[in-house]
Design a protein around this nucleic acid. Structure first.
Length: 267
DNA sequence: ATGGTGGCTGCGCCA
């Protein structure tokens, strides 16, 4: 079973890029973030024509929005909380049947958190921390089993998840309070699949800002997108690939897709 | 130290 997660930064604008990715990568299940499309305008038919008959999505006008597209039947999780009471379409989940049992898949778009890393003066940073705390309490109360978390978590936790650990120490996405909260969340029962495949000593990024003349030359990236597995799925992990080349496609997202291969067959 | 770009929407907001 091949999964792909991608912060697409506007699904409608980048539908042609998604079609090319599907052609080249053939994922069974696609998790998108920042779809930026309200549900009534979701391009469901175009995605069915690309082979994804099974869809679960939640979006809003202009901001946020998540979607899960599948070639195989899925069941939406309907008991997930409305984080911070904002109804801001940052999380959906599904289950899918495989030859090794039911697997649960969560698709998250964690708040970016604004520019100033101080919850007292920056409401967006306060929201980011509160979001992480709420999610963590929920997973503590609902311990994950045979589960996967993917998405844009908007935090680069490790030294080599950023281009400069020192220069980004006070930059939102790499500050201690965020990293501690991300760890508390993953400690509810997940392992970092990307770092099982790419050693932590090696630089690994999934996002390069638009605000660079030459993203590849300056290479000021961050690993903001993640794939977590519960340990009971670890033995099925075959590979993870960061599709860095996609950052060079025309009119790209600032995030690149991440592919996960699991030795599980959709039932 | 600053400002840099992109997507939405409708010229300011968010990333």
């Amino acid at each position: 079973m091949r999964l792909m997660t991608w912060n697409i930064n506007s699904l409608r604008l980048r539908l042609p890029l998604l079609a090319r990715l599907i052609e080249e990568q053939s994922p069974d299940i696609i998790c998108l973030q920042e779809t930026k499309v309200p549900d009534p305008l979701f391009p469901a038919q175009a995605l069915r024509e690309l082979g994804y008959d099974h869809q679960h999505f939640m979006g809003m006008k202009g901001y946020n929005g998540v979607a899960i597209l599948s070639r195989h039947p899925i069941r939406a999780l309907d008991a997930v909380p409305d984080w911070c009471g904002k109804s801001d379409t940052r999380h959906i989940g599904i289950t899918v049947e495989t030859d090794r049992g039911t697997v649960t898949l969560h698709d998250f778009y964690v708040p970016a958190g604004g520019d100033i890393a101080d919850p007292a003066v920056n409401d967006k940073f306060a929201h980011k921390l509160a979001f992480l705390e709420e999610v963590t309490s929920w997973f503590r109360k609902n311990p994950p089993v045979r589960s996967i978390v993917v998405g844009d978590l908007n935090i680069a936790p490790l030294e080599h998840d950023v281009w400069s650990h020192k220069q980004l120490a006070d930059v939102v996405s790499h500050t201690l309070p965020e990293i501690e909260r991300l760890k508390a969340w993953s400690d509810t029962g997940f392992v970092d699949a990307m770092r099982l495949v790419v050693p932590p000593e090696q630089k690994l990024y999934t996002w390069w800002s638009y605000r660079n003349r030459d993203w590849k030359l300056s290479n000021r990236g961050r690993r903001l997108d993640h794939v977590w597995l519960t340990p009971d799925l670890r033995e099925h992990l075959q590979d993870v690939a960061v599709l860095k080349d996609v950052r060079d496609w025309s009119s790209p997202s600032d995030h690149v897709p991440v592919i996960v291969d699991l030795a599980l067959n959709p039932a």
